[in-house]
């Protein structure tokens, strides 16, 4: 009897091990543990056994059933693992093939540059002021201490809309608007589109973009301007950049300076971009001319300020080195996609 049972267990194990497909294993289970299987029959027959044998045989039969069930479970795991492995092998694919289409857009290099500039000054607590592109002659010139008869006001440089109205030639008129609209302290930058009566070529465009800066507060010095612009230049062009001031002339600032940053391409050794000087001009700036402050009724002994202005196109050019300004307005995707971020 016992030998008989051992044989059954051996046969069952052999059959289970021999099943390599899920279906075959299921078949084996039915054959070994199903309603008509020998083991099931025997288990069912326990009740007919003499009472003194029931305990031992019943225990032994149940042990065998549990062992078989464990063997099936183990085999099931093996089969599933192998089938999964085969499935995965069938799934194998060249993962270097291109992916599904996810449309990729992007921001124009001028927007990226504008945001970079804005963010640097926002970090210093500045706000962003805006003004109209069709602007009063008064704001564009007179309020900025640019006298009548100045060549910039002429028919050759300025696009006029109506008597006393022009397309702003710089973002500086927003200085005048801000000074009238807001009590100092004032810390603003003014990004925007400006116009000149220039024929488009590699270095000129009738339309371009500037960022103006204006600070008016008590005790503002030229040294504050230098520190602010040095911070700006390092933020934009790298921590090693040096900044220098050259005295210059603008009607609405006095003293006026042009600001150079040490060349970030050649590190000061001299290259084509810095014209062998080691320095690159990035913007014009100065202390707000007392005439400009007095025109809005500010006491120039109490309030001082500085202003600066830069071309976004120029900054973008310095950072990215494209050869022709017109590329910025052609909107050729082959150009735009070169500046993803």
């Amino acid at each position: 009897m016992a030998d008989d049972l051992e044989q059954l267990l051996r046969d069952a194990r052999e059959r289970i091990q021999g099943a390599s497909l899920r279906a075959a294993l299921e078949e084996a289970r039915v054959a070994i543990l199903g309603r008509n299987a020998e083991l099931t029959q025997r288990l069912r027959g326990i009740a007919q056994l003499p009472a003194d044998q029931r305990g031992a045989i019943g225990k032994r039969l149940n042990e065998v059933r549990l062992q078989i069930e464990a063997a099936i479970a183990e085999r099931e795991q093996q089969v599933a693992a192998r089938e999964l492995a085969e499935q995965l092998e069938r799934d194998r694919i060249d993962v270097t093939l291109p992916g599904a289409v996810v449309p990729r857009g992007g921001l124009h290099v001028l927007t990226q540059t504008r945001r970079q500039i804005e963010d640097i000054f926002i970090g210093l607590g500045y706000q962003i002021a805006e003004g109209p592109e069709i602007e009063l002659e008064y704001n564009n010139f007179t309020a900025l201490n640019i006298p009548d008869g100045h060549p910039a006001k002429g028919e050759t440089d300025t696009l006029w809309i109506a008597p006393g109205v022009c397309l702003r030639t710089h973002t500086s008129p927003v200085q005048a608007r801000t000074l009238r609209a807001q009590e100092p302290p004032i810390y603003v930058i003014v990004p925007g589109r400006v116009y000149r009566r220039d024929t488009p070529d590699a270095t000129h465009s009738p339309i371009f973009h500037q960022v103006e800066g204006l600070v008016v507060d008590r005790g503002i010095t030229l040294a504050d301007l230098k520190g602010t612009l040095a911070y700006f230049a390092r933020s934009l062009f790298g921590a090693d950049r040096e900044t220098r001031f050259r005295t210059s002339f603008f009607p609405f600032t006095e003293p006026s300076v042009e600001v150079d940053v040490s060349c970030f391409l050649c590190a000061g050794d001299g290259c084509g971009v810095c014209k062998q000087s080691g320095w690159i001009e990035i913007l014009g700036a100065g202390q707000v001319d007392p005439n400009v402050l007095a025109m809005v009724g500010l006491d120039t002994d109490e309030w001082q300020g500085f202003a600066f202005g830069m071309g976004i196109e120029r900054i973008a050019f310095l950072k990215h080195g494209f050869p022709d300004l017109r590329l910025l307005y052609d909107n050729d995707l082959r150009f735009l996609e070169q500046f993803p971020a």
Binding site: G125, G219, K226
Partner: peptide, 30 residues
């Protein structure tokens, strides 16, 4: 103010210190 520029530029703007004004009055940002 014009004489300030005269004196400053001949004295030498390279001697200017670099300071950043501290702003306390109101918040900045977009």
């Amino acid at each position: 103010i014009d004489l300030v520029e005269e004196v400053g530029r001949i004295h030498g703007l390279d001697a200017l210190p670099a300071t950043i004004p501290a702003r306390h009055d109101r918040g900045g940002g977009l």
